[in-house]
Amino acid sequence: MGDSSHSRPRVGLLVTCLVDAMRPTVGFAAVDLIEKAGCEVDVPAQTCCGQPAYNSGDRDGARLLAEAVIAAFEPYDYVVAPSGSCAAMMKQHYPGLFADDPHWHARAERFSAKVFELVSFLVDVRGMTGVEASYSGKVTYHDSCSGLRELGVREQPRKLLGSVAGLEITEMKDADVCCGFGGAFCVKYPDISNAIVGKKADNIIASGAQTVLAGDLGCLMNMAGKLARDGSKVKARHVAEVLAGMTDRPAIGESE
């Protein structure tokens, strides 16, 4: 980036461990969208936001990882993640981890104020009203729980998707109900998780959509895996891929 970009906000992308390992395309889509929103993007060395430890009851472990994330991302104007659950972890839960440490608590508060989920960052912070992308066919959008209930992400993705040429949104029944992923939950309680995602897959199929979109890769892998196992042809993609026009790669769980 040249000197001319000084006026542009600097965004640190927390790519999330799932996107890093499983689907880098989502990370590049996020970079592209944040740049289109007039920001400069950087990706500091990173691992994980600490959610697995936090949700397993390992508060000290979560705190250690939170300290590393805060330190790595402190220099940026904003911290953006293409995931409602990782963003909610950093925005809503980090300060509480430091309740007994005023210095770190203040640092965490300052940090959390800068954290946003990708699509809400584009719409709510950067005022994006549309994208130049096209995607043909009917899509249905699954509201991932943390993004929806902890960060208020509901209308923003639908608004931007509405501007995608050729795309038609069809709402599924219970779009705001959990898909049964729940991080470690899906492998700790596989039968329950399966019963929940089974209902979700039925609702996706009943919507008549050819593609299901969501803002969290964990949910998407869960839904894509179930749809595939049930023999459905419905594709699954991260909403950022469609908004960035990066849909030339195979959908989640599909081959080249």
Partner: peptide
């Protein structure tokens, strides 16, 4: 109960 989508091949970082 589910298929596991395979990774794309390299890490984002």
């Amino acid at each position: 109960h589910r298929d596991l989508p395979a990774p794309e091949g390299r890490t984002f970082q």
